[in-house]
Design a protein around this nucleic acid. Structure first.
Ligand code: MN
Ligand code: MN
Ligand code: ZN
Ligand code: ZN
Lengths: 140, 140
DNA sequence: TGTTAGTTAGCACGACTTGTTGATTAGCAG
DNA sequence: CTGCTAATCAACAAGTCGTGCTAACTAACA
């Protein structure tokens, strides 16, 4: 994702108004590695701006997603997570606590075999599931 | 997934009754590479057994899933898909028509880098997204 | 044959997300 | 500064996917 300042400029270019709500969300996403859901982002936002609506958070996230500034990650476990990291990267997910971390796989592009003649791969998503160090420690 | 005959035996062992509905679903899943949703499986089932309920299809799929006989695949695009192929395999998905095919990746286990000290990987899921040959042909 | 699990219809609910409406606020171009 | 208009908000509804529940009926299996 671009910096909050650059996003302000891009929003102005696109004819979108630069509201305090949008700017707050830009800042909350900047450098955010928590892979938050709309709901969790809303909760943090509401602390700094009581009265902001969940609807607006969803709306702004959709705009950023449409602009390619955030990625949305559906891990199949409840709500979609949003990711300001749009580098070519992948994720490890703890099945116990749900924490998501970025990982980088250098063997990509991967080679695969199967009955898929002529299939043009545009993107590859890898999710490693397991148990994080903290959860392993607690359960021991 | 085991054969329908073996599943009949396993269900009896577990104290589950072997109903015509369950047997029909066993047969519909046997060798099925379509990665159907509960809904699409229900539609096919209802042709052969009018009156079967969607509820029962969901129920039986849950039982098979709990037994490890089918895998459920959440591609983040609508309903969960069910897969009687429980081998270690991955998927290619056409973004246009939604078709899902099995693929096998032989570089697994994959090596990754990131801030994930002590994370124990239990499973790896890879999804290749792109455009299938048919869709490429149609759009050309 | 009897017990009991399974099935069904029907309705509701829950989670997540989007749509709508109508009133209010405020960004920003001129 | 002013005015146009987008944005926000509250409130409510709706849609999708999946599950829960009930009550009545059916049928598997001991
Ligand atoms: Mn990420
Ligand atoms: Mn498969
Ligand atoms: Zn954990
Ligand atoms: Zn296709």
């Amino acid at each position: 994702m671009k910096t909050p300042e650059e996003l302000v400029a891009r929003f102005r270019e696109q004819g979108y108004k630069v509201t305090p709500q949008r700017q707050l969300i830009f800042r909350l996403l900047d450098g955010n590695t928590a892979h938050p859901t709309a709901e969790t982002l809303y909760e943090v936002a509401a602390q700094q701006m009581p009265g902001i609506s969940l609807r607006t958070v969803y709306q702004t996230l959709s705009e950023l997603s449409a602009m390619g500034e955030v990625q949305h990650i559906d891990l199949g476990s409840g709500a979609v997570r949003f990711d300001p990291n749009v580098d070519d990267h992948h994720h490890v997910v703890c099945s116990t606590c749900g924490v998501v971390h970025d990982v980088y796989v250098n063997q990509t592009p991967l080679h695969f075999e199967g009955d898929v003649e002529g299939f043009a791969v545009h993107s590859t998503r890898i999710v490693f599931s397991g148990e994080c160090a903290q959860c392993a420690h607690l359960s021991a």
